[in-house]
Design a protein around this nucleic acid. Structure first.
Lengths: 202, 202
DNA sequence: ACCTGAACACCGTTCAAGT
DNA sequence: ACCTGAACACCGTTCAAGT
């Protein structure tokens, strides 16, 4: 059945990504394999290697898409809020909601082990940076223009914190510690941090 | 070569754990396999299943040991500090130092996917809780006895935050965002959070 | 040129059989 | 009783061979 040319290279590329994402959603990261994906799209394993470098490359591209979706979600969250403080709270909640709704996709992004030799691709890096910039611009609005350096560091520290809440909530290591709700925990972190940050300026 | 009885069950148990930890340290989580561990200790794969339920069980026990070490490190960090604020800062730095020094071990604890059917074993849960309690008692000292509920939530929120800094630092997704140093980032998070928390009480 | 499918070197897990 | 080792059902990756 060689030389089929039923699909273009780009079509196969997209078919693989869609099938892989479906597999990820249903079976989790452990169930994601080149052989299953190949079967799912009706091609042989070898074909995947014409379109992707290897499984790592495929995972990286799925993660790129996940970061795009996450970014869109955060943008949406800032649309319905008045002041910077509420915008940041809304983004934090949106971040955690997204992670819970797309648990396995989100886990794949952050569980993915970076192999020492090859750094993350450039567009992947910019996708991460873009997210931090979103928080930074809100902090800038909150603190005023003169404190831009503080906003830059603050945005990173705060967003790392939100990520930590999210990370422990998803890994189910939080329930044990008697947390009432992830939402209130997030608010505790964000509100106290912001109060501390604004108090500093006086 | 059957029926050797060179080692007791407990001895084999410990040999497996040590060999697995060595493999983890050198090759990372990906290089950890039952077959390699078996070869390393001079037994066949089947023998591992006399002592461990499966690979997941083995990983869980390694993680339990890692949490023990982490706890000891945090306890040590509180020995050389005067007031609660400095104790918390010291613990946060110790947490991150530990994660960087034992990168692969630490990653295995938090990347390990919890399979939905079986919850974490009880002693594993208590190991996690113990850590949060350590932070909580410092916050209690800082806030006074009347604010114990605030301390409980605050400890969880703050430690999730520290965990987030650690998590993103280890996964090398932070360097991209222009953070000067992980230490100063941690201080930014902890100091602003604590300032916000104490300001609230006035 | 496009795709196959067999091969290679790995996995986790089980369990009849050997001593 | 203790341990083996072969078997089963999986992996990722490569590449000569077929159309």
């Amino acid at each position: 059945m060689a030389r089929r040319s039923d699909h273009s290279r780009d079509e196969i590329h997209e078919m693989v990504l869609l099938a892989a994402e479906r597999l990820l959603e249903t079976e989790g990261a452990g169930g994601l394999s080149t052989r299953k994906v190949a079967t799912e799209i009706g091609y042989t394993v070898g074909t995947l290697y014409l379109v992707f470098e290897n499984l790592d490359d495929l995972v990286q591209q799925i993660n790129g898409r996940t970061l795009d979706r996450l970014y869109d979600t955060l943008i949406q969250a800032t649309k319905d809020c008045a002041d910077p403080q509420h915008c940041i709270e809304a983004m934090a909640h949106a971040y955690i909601e997204f992670a819970i709704a797309h648990r396995k996709r989100w886990q794949l992004v952050f569980e993915h082990v970076v192999t020492g030799d090859a750094p993350l691709p450039g567009d992947y890096q910019s996708k991460v940076k873009r997210m931090f910039d979103l928080v930074e611009s809100q902090l800038n609005a909150l603190l005023g223009v003169k404190a831009s350096l503080q906003a830059a560091n603050g945005a990173r520290a705060l967003w790392c914190g939100v990520h930590g809440v999210c990370s422990l909530a998803i890994s189910q290591k939080l329930e044990v510690t008697g947390v009432k709700s992830v939402e209130s925990l997030t608010d505790t972190l964000v509100d106290n941090f912001l109060r501390g940050l604004t108090a500093k300026r006086k």
